[in-house]
């Protein structure tokens, strides 16, 4: 089984039981990531993208839990593992990079000690060898004078440098998969470009796959091979990045792309999607996007669409239902939206 996907998420549901009912920040999401692939997960706040990333590495706090579905790492289910077993997977097989580098770094430990600890926990090497590798890792992520800076504390680095350290830490034990959750959101534009380039280069070199979670379409365009668009905890559309961004199928992706201002575009009026992302307590019936959708028709508020396979991806929208005979003119139903 050579082309078995590295990570396979199947119909994943994350539930939070609160006194006002059960909330589902992730509701039936499924996709695969191949070895060495960079998959982007894009969505606005409340889309459930970060929760999905946390669910994969078993970092969901109570009262949240994975209610159903499966997460397979190299064919092995990891969503039911004990906390101890999960800890061994995190760091060793799945590296993590978060938005705020300070949540990944212990402020009281020298960065070198943290990297050495990670290497020695997961790989059978001695102290001196681990330190040598840590210096090499820091050097590789572009920390100047790595041999000297290895004994610095996290607060002695700038935001961009700190994020480089986190990347070095995430890659230290040579994981197969890196989950990067908004790794550049807190950084300046010029630093963001450097970090994205670094993440891309290192993962390519080591053959690590990346799940890049972000809200920024520009980052998606420049960094990813494939992209999954999430809306209200569900997958709206998935496919090769150029396809999805230039020829989006789901009306939400269409609206999103048209409402994104560009440094290239002329000053024409921006498209706007009416309304805003629904709260978890008020997910609309049927297709969650239908109240904001310009192409919604009768079926959309009654039945929830499952992802329908397309040429190279899938789209969860009734407009693309091959079994619907009345779909020759998809734009007819326009005007049903509020």
């Amino acid at each position: 089984m050579i082309d078995r996907p590295l990570l396979s998420i199947r119909d994943l549901v994350v539930e939070f039981t609160t006194r006002r009912g059960v909330l589902r920040p992730v509701d039936g999401v499924g996709f695969d990531i191949a070895r060495g692939e960079i998959l982007g997960v894009v969505g606005e706040s409340g889309a459930g993208k970060s929760m999905m990333g946390s669910a994969v590495v078993g970092l969901i706090d109570r009262p949240g839990r994975i209610a159903s579905g499966a997460v397979l790492l190299d064919g092995e289910p990891i969503h039911r593992l004990s906390e101890e077993a999960m800890r061994r997977i995190r760091g060793r097989r799945i590296g993590m990079v978060f938005q705020d580098p300070l949540t990944s770094l212990n402020p009281l430990l020298r960065i070198g000690d943290q990297i050495v600890e990670t290497i020695r926990t997961h790989l059978p090497v001695g102290e001196a060898e681990a330190r040598r590798r840590a210096i090499a890792a820091l050097d590789e992520v572009g920390i100047p004078a790595a041999a000297r800076r290895i004994d610095s504390y996290p607060h002695e680095f700038s935001g961009g440098m700190r994020q480089r350290v986190v990347i070095a830490l995430a890659l230290a034990a040579e994981p197969d998969l890196v989950i990067a959750d908004e790794p550049t959101t807190a950084l300046d534009v010029s630093v963001q470009a450097q970090i994205i380039a670094l993440l891309k280069r290192l993962c390519r070199e080591r053959g690590a796959a990346v799940m890049l979670i972000t809200h920024d379409m520009g980052v998606i365009a420049e960094a990813t091979d494939r992209v999954a668009v999430m809306y209200a905890g569900r997958l709206a559309e998935i496919g090769p990045t150029p396809d999805v961004l230039t020829r989006p199928k789901h009306p939400y992706t269409v609206g999103l792309m048209r409402s994104t201002p560009s440094t290239l575009g002329a000053g024409g009026r921006l498209h706007q999607i009416p309304g805003s992302m629904p709260g978890l307590r008020a997910i609309p019936s049927g297709c969650a996007f239908h109240p904001r959708c310009p192409k919604a028709f009768a079926r959309c508020d009654r039945e929830r669409p499952d992802p329908i396979p397309t040429a190279a991806g899938a789209v969860a929208c009734w407009l693309y239902d091959p079994e619907d005979p009345a779909l020759s003119g998809a734009g007819e139903a326009e005007g049903t939206a509020t």
């Binding site: 630093v191 963001q192 470009a193 380039a197 365009a221 560009s262 440094t263 290239l264």
Partner: peptide, 17 residues
């Protein structure tokens, strides 16, 4: 301007920064 992510630059790497 080079560093700003672009929607049309698939797979681009901004090297000038």
């Amino acid at each position: 301007l080079d560093a700003a992510p672009r929607l049309d630059a698939f797979g681009r790497t901004a090297e000038t920064v």
